[in-house]
Amino acid sequence: MDRVTLDDLLTRSGGVCEFCGADERLGGVEVAPLGPIVLCAVCRGDRPDNAGHWRCLEGAAWSQEPAVQYAVWRRLQSLDEAWATETRDAMMLLPEVQAVVDMPAAVEHRDSNGVRLAQGDTVVLIKDLPVKGAGFTAKRGTAVRSITLVADNAAHIEGRVDGQRIVILTEFVKKK
């Protein structure tokens, strides 16, 4: 499969966030296993959201782009709101999205308190962690946004700290 560039994604999305339609601070986000999507800084978790921001997912749930639809489905799953549950339950998933949703979960990632972690969650480090090979220490209290779960290891997640992508043990994080 050819490598998708940000320009390709912006062309596909019409130059807007594929969740909320914002046209500023756009960036590509990989949605394994279906491919990348375009999100704004708020939807990526790089900036704080405001009350009601995630209601945009009600419209995005109807996307015909499999990666977008799957990302919406996952994000709705992480929201503890009645409207989010209703929207998720009403989604008509594309066949390729349904196949991913129906795949048995290989491993379950849990934080230091036993709370289940999901792809895209934000976690906080509970202790200072020396980062091998990077020459710095990730400080306790650092928020790691938009984590990625390591598919074959329940004890590992990946996230970006100080601009560096690192592997973090789940025993040293708590879900935010």
Score class of each variant (00 low, 15 high):
residue 107 V to C: 06
residue 105 A to W: 06
residue 110 R to M: 03
residue 92 M to W: 10
residue 103 M to Y: 09
residue 116 R to H: 06
residue 104 P to E: 15
residue 101 V to I: 15
residue 102 D to R: 14
residue 96 E to C: 01
residue 107 V to K: 13
residue 111 D to Y: 03
residue 112 S to D: 09
residue 96 E to W: 01
residue 114 G to I: 01
residue 121 D to Q: 06
residue 95 P to E: 12
residue 115 V to I: 08
residue 115 V to C: 03
residue 107 V to S: 05
residue 108 E to G: 12
residue 121 D to V: 10
residue 96 E to F: 00
residue 92 M to L: 13
residue 104 P to S: 15
residue 119 Q to E: 13
residue 97 V to W: 01
residue 119 Q to S: 12
residue 102 D to H: 11
residue 98 Q to E: 10
residue 109 H to Q: 05
residue 98 Q to R: 13
residue 93 L to R: 08
residue 121 D to C: 09
residue 109 H to T: 03
residue 115 V to Y: 03
residue 122 T to W: 12
residue 109 H to N: 05
residue 112 S to I: 10
residue 98 Q to F: 01
residue 121 D to L: 11
residue 96 E to M: 04
residue 102 D to F: 06
residue 110 R to V: 07
residue 122 T to L: 05
residue 116 R to Q: 11
residue 122 T to Y: 07
residue 122 T to M: 09
residue 95 P to S: 14
residue 116 R to S: 12
residue 122 T to G: 06
residue 97 V to I: 08
residue 105 A to I: 10
residue 97 V to Q: 01
residue 122 T to I: 12
residue 94 L to I: 07
residue 119 Q to Y: 06
residue 121 D to M: 08
residue 105 A to P: 00
residue 107 V to F: 04
residue 93 L to E: 06
residue 123 V to H: 04
residue 110 R to Q: 09
residue 95 P to I: 14
residue 94 L to H: 02
residue 112 S to E: 11
residue 117 L to S: 09
residue 92 M to A: 09
residue 118 A to R: 04
residue 96 E to Y: 00
residue 112 S to M: 11
residue 103 M to N: 07
residue 123 V to N: 04
residue 118 A to T: 01
residue 104 P to W: 15
residue 114 G to K: 09
residue 94 L to V: 08
residue 108 E to R: 15
residue 103 M to F: 07
residue 97 V to F: 02
residue 100 V to P: 02
residue 99 A to H: 07
residue 102 D to P: 07
residue 118 A to Y: 08
residue 111 D to K: 07
residue 115 V to A: 13
residue 116 R to C: 05
residue 112 S to K: 14
residue 106 A to F: 11
residue 122 T to V: 13
residue 123 V to E: 03
residue 100 V to E: 14
residue 122 T to K: 10
residue 107 V to Q: 12
residue 114 G to D: 05
residue 116 R to N: 02
residue 96 E to G: 00
residue 94 L to F: 03
residue 120 G to Q: 10
residue 98 Q to V: 01
residue 113 N to F: 02
residue 112 S to R: 15
residue 104 P to Q: 15
residue 93 L to T: 07
residue 106 A to E: 14
residue 116 R to K: 14
residue 100 V to D: 04
residue 123 V to F: 02
residue 96 E to Q: 10
residue 108 E to Q: 14
residue 118 A to C: 11
residue 108 E to L: 14
residue 101 V to G: 06
residue 103 M to G: 01
residue 123 V to A: 02
residue 101 V to N: 11
